[in-house]
Write a protein that binds this DNA or RNA. Sequence first.
DNA 1: CGCGTTCATTGAACTAGGACAAGAACCTCA
DNA 2: TGAGGTTCTTGTCCTAGTTCAATGAACGCG
Lengths: 196, 196
Amino acid sequence: MNEERYARIIGNISRCTAMPYEQQQKFLAALEVKQVPKKTQLLRAGEVCDFEAYVNKGCMRSYFLDEHGHEVTLQFATEDWWVSDVVSMAEGKPSRIFIEALEDSELLCIHRGKKEDLYRDIPGLERVFRMMLLRNLGALQDRLFATMAWPAEERYAAVLKRFPELPNRVPQHMIASYLGITPEFLSKLRARRVAK
Amino acid sequence: MNEERYARIIGNISRCTAMPYEQQQKFLAALEVKQVPKKTQLLRAGEVCDFEAYVNKGCMRSYFLDEHGHEVTLQFATEDWWVSDVVSMAEGKPSRIFIEALEDSELLCIHRGKKEDLYRDIPGLERVFRMMLLRNLGALQDRLFATMAWPAEERYAAVLKRFPELPNRVPQHMIASYLGITPEFLSKLRARRVAK
DNA sequence: CGCGTTCATTGAACTAGGACAAGAACCTCA
DNA sequence: TGAGGTTCTTGTCCTAGTTCAATGAACGCG
């Protein structure tokens, strides 16, 4: 149970609350290690989300479909990010989002049933997940700010700056769908960039 | 302390966790009742947010300014909503948003310092605020979905449907800034609506 | 190796929504 | 009563971004 596989998740969680060894073990014991090959769909719209997945290795994406069937990317999750539909999971309501693997990935999953047990057994855990929600909320707020106040070109530059490796790991049309523009337009933006 | 002033906030919180009487009293004792006249600025960008305010009566608004100085409305908070910059409050970082009163309002405020005490004294409270964050997150996600996938006209119709009273309480140009469009364009949308 | 599929680019025509300007209809407060 | 701010409307011109279509490039996969 002390495998290096768990070093990073424990490190990240400990930054929120100090957690005695035995509680850490309880936490790790509740995790399911899941190897998912590229293109696996972990969640489909209409299903209730029953997991929160920590990306130990690989890259995941969550997105939804608008009424024309166009994808809108919500999040890319690479190493040390969580991916889930937390609202669907917490409230047991069907999700509207899809979650898929963009690379062969290793996930550490907490399942719906086990989470309540953990909250009971590990007093500091509510706090950890509350802080995760906060970070989530902050990120989403930034995103809304940017979408409403900045033109696509600046949003693209900002994404490149924060995640320089992203274009090497995910196809360009998905970045476009994250920015809220068409792949064609992103292509034109890029052409404009190199021209300058 | 049993005034009817507190009936609704207690009702709302109890829907998240059962809370024994004495804990309720502890919670209420930590609240500051604040009467704010119309146009009061409760928070300005650059300040650290040190409160979460429950709107007992009246109407508040949170917004930020883009680089051209244009307002973008984040939220309207009428009776029984909370308004705050939870991220700034939790992490002690300066906020980028403004919070102001659109009507003379009565607020029930939890201040930054007291909140940690409350978490310590009332075990169920982490859960309550975690659920509030979840609802917040859900709302923000819906908003991002809508902004990216729907044209302004449908977004406007959706807002009217969810908050039919809104146009009677807040000026139209603020609704425009909530929708992410200019006041002029909203005016034209409305003209188009009645024409049909 | 070759073949289909997914991916990126480019161009031309179009549209949702913005910027600016001017006027009308208001509150509000002395 | 009036004066000045605020709010809403309308029109004209302009631009960021879309749609559609065509062409290659690159990537699995048998």
